[in-house]
């Protein structure tokens, strides 16, 4: 029984699925919020998969997602600006998702990894996720 992969599967079904529902209907603001949540969740899924498959190099996927995900959301905020109703519906779910989801995934992973370069990488991903999540929700609120 591989708990990491189970957790990844749960995040895909219970996290990415609803995000797609949010992104597929309604106004532009709601869709961008869902897109942002999806990048965050996918990044966590990549971290869990890397641990579950026992392939530390897959963490690079999470590293790239943690930078490019918020960048993508900022692109939408910048160019859809006037279409996004402020504050967009669902936005208040975003901050708790970042504040709870990131540590809930990263702390067990850090404990399982132990000290070393891999831990440093995990912490960089975590910091980028929290900073990106907070900044994108700020940007969406003022769109």
């Amino acid at each position: 029984m591989n708990g990491w992969l189970v957790a990844a599967a749960v995040l895909v079904v219970a996290g990415l699925g609803p995000s797609l529902w949010g992104a597929a209907r309604g106004g532009a603001g709601r869709r961008v919020v869902a897109q942002n949540a999806a990048t965050l969740l996918l990044c966590l899924v990549f971290l869990l998969l890397a641990q579950g498959y026992g392939r530390p190099s897959y963490v690079d996927l999470a590293l790239v997602t943690s930078v490019l995900g918020p960048a993508g959301t900022l692109v939408f905020v910048r160019l859809l600006g006037d279409e996004i109703d402020a504050p967009p519906p669902g936005l208040r779910l975003l901050t708790p998702l970042v504040a709870v989801g990131t540590p809930a995934t990263l702390v067990p992973l850090c404990i399982a990894t132990g000290p070393g370069r891999a831990l440093l990488k995990l912490l960089v991903v975590g910091a980028l996720l929290v900073a990106g999540g907070l900044v994108t929700s700020r940007a969406l609120r003022h769109a």
Partner: peptide, 23 residues
């Protein structure tokens, strides 16, 4: 709005390639 959905499709494809071990 389609661009937003396309972005999610891209994320889904990235996930699919990863679980098929093509990082």
């Amino acid at each position: 709005r389609q661009a937003v959905v396309l972005s999610l499709l891209g994320l889904g494809l990235a996930l699919l390639f990863t679980v098929l071990q093509a990082p």
